[in-house]
Amino acid sequence: MQKQLDSRVTTEEINLLIEKAIGGDASAFGGLYDMYVDRVYRHVYYRVGSIPDTEDITQQTFFKAWKVIGQYKKTTASFLAWLIKISHNLVIDHYRSGKNNRAVDIDSIDLASGNDPAQSAESHYEKEQIRKAIRQLKGEQQQVILLRFIEDFSYAEIAASLDKSEGAVRVILHRGLIELKKIVEKDP
């Protein structure tokens, strides 16, 4: 099911853009980029934690998506889920290539949220702990937790994008949370 990202853009219009992009319409693909770049960026950022790497991978995601857009089948997963899957593979490549040694700069960004400083600091600490723990999760567990809790994907969408059953996704999520708890407790 295609999520409605913007109240001004209907699902039908999004589907039309996707169809045109698959047919080679670059401007339609540009429209999809405008709609999804923030979501892809945020997802990647959660996984790699550095702005330069996030920008690099986000850009690569859309370049790659254009090259293989003919392979996209809207019946299986939403376009965003498909983009996220591409970014997931690029993140894996990124870690394999050993480029993940850049400084994590989440701190400076999250402190700028404008909330009460004391409350923000405490909340920031907890969330930062969890973010670091998420980054230590293994591939599928990390992916399911991010898609569910950050991207707000339905279980059906997650299942479609990972080629799993919904039941399997729930199990992965459960195990991921247990693993997360262990990581946090181990490295408080």
Partner: peptide
């Protein structure tokens, strides 16, 4: 597990800069 899950929130200010979005679109 529930406490952990509740704390997994989207960071408020994480997002691409306008300059990145535009320059990437141009390159694309």
């Amino acid at each position: 597990l529930l406490r952990m899950a509740i704390n997994i929130n989207e960071p408020l200010t994480t997002g691409p800069s306008a300059q990145f979005k535009i320059s990437t679109r141009v390159k694309l």
